[in-house]
Design a binder for these strands. Structure first.
Length: 289
DNA sequence: ATTGTCAACTAGCTGC
DNA sequence: GCAGCTAGTTGACAAT
């Protein structure tokens, strides 16, 4: 196998050029025993020249009886590729992670390795790349999940706040239904719910007016009362806790969506036996499942 | 001594 | 059937 290193120079130039790499490796660079102080003097991680890095330890078993080097004569032992061999292989891998037979032979020739070694290196490299890719994908998915979870938690908290607010307002309305309703003012929602505050305040004021106008009629009548579909406001016509209402459950999945209360039916008084403020509030909570 | 990395191997699968 | 691939494993080596 002596003289194998001589394959290096011209083949390297051709191969790298064909792969679109930028260095000119042509010339006597890889001629054994030649100085490496020309235009290119790559060093590996241990300060060895490119020539030694490429053809040093790997081929010590071809040097003959010299077993005083870094690696003794152990043909069956596994040996790490040199830094520059790896660099070259990495460049090749960047350009194309698949290995055509012709390219494999070229690289093997240039690096002074067996084609089988090149094939194995590419196989292992693809495996490492896949592992890295999986790690990247995992990190990406994890950050997406974390963001989504934060969003979800925020919505859950908002829902709980709204529940508490609705319960509070419901209690307040029921207490005041016989009293001085004119003095009622909607309670201000937390700052983080300002956008909902306006909507809720409007709805409650409307409710306030509706209660004033409808209260006597409801109390006097035992006939079924059906609201016009699409014309119910939030907490609509909560004129009496003896007059429970029912939402269209097909639409209650829209958390916090005021429109979700648009489609609902009132239960007629004989359809319901509820009479507590908590039952009324519970019905309202269908808004936020 | 333990652990991580990497070259090399093996088994099983696929496409030609 | 063969070549080449992936996934999993082994063994050498280096770092700690």
């Amino acid at each position: 196998m002596a003289g194998k290193r001589h394959h290096g120079s011209s083949n390297m130039a051709v191969l790298l050029q064909s792969q679109g790499t930028y260095r000119d490796f042509s010339g006597p660079l890889f001629a054994p025993g030649r100085p490496t102080g020309g235009s290119l003097d790559l060093k590996d991680g241990h300060g060895n020249s490119l020539e030694r890095a490429l053809f040093g330890p790997v081929e010590l078993d071809e040097i003959g009886d010299d077993e005083t080097g870094e690696y003794p004569h152990q043909p069956d032992k596994k040996r790490r590729l040199t830094t520059c061999q790896v660099q070259f292989l990495e460049k090749s891998f960047e350009l194309e992670n698949k290995l055509e037979p012709e390219r494999k032979l070229q690289i093997a020739k240039v690096l002074g390795l067996k084609p089988r070694q090149i094939a194995v290196w590419f196989q292992n490299r693809r495996a490492r790349w896949k592992t890295k890719q999986i790690e990247k994908d995992y990190e990406s998915l994890k950050s997406s999940y974390d963001a989504l979870k934060m969003d979800h938690d925020s919505l859950v908290k908002e829902k709980e706040d709204l529940k508490a607010e609705v319960l509070s307002l419901t209690k307040r309305l029921l207490k005041e239904e016989d009293g001085s309703l004119e003095s009622f003012e909607p309670k201000r929602l937390p700052d983080n719910l300002q956008n909902l505050d306006a909507t809720l305040a409007t709805e409650v004021k409307k409710l306030h007016e509706d209660i004033s106008s409808a209260n006597s009629a409801i109390l006097d009548s035992e006939s079924p009362h059906h609201a016009h579909e699409g014309d119910c406001s939030m907490l609509m016509e909560l004129n009496s806790y003896s007059n429970a209402f029912r939402l269209d459950h097909s639409d209650h999945s829209q958390i916090g969506d005021v429109d979700s209360v648009k489609h609902c039916d009132f239960l007629s008084p004989e359809d319901t036996s509820c009479g507590s403020e908590f039952h009324v509030a519970e019905q309202v909570f269908w808004l936020w499942p």
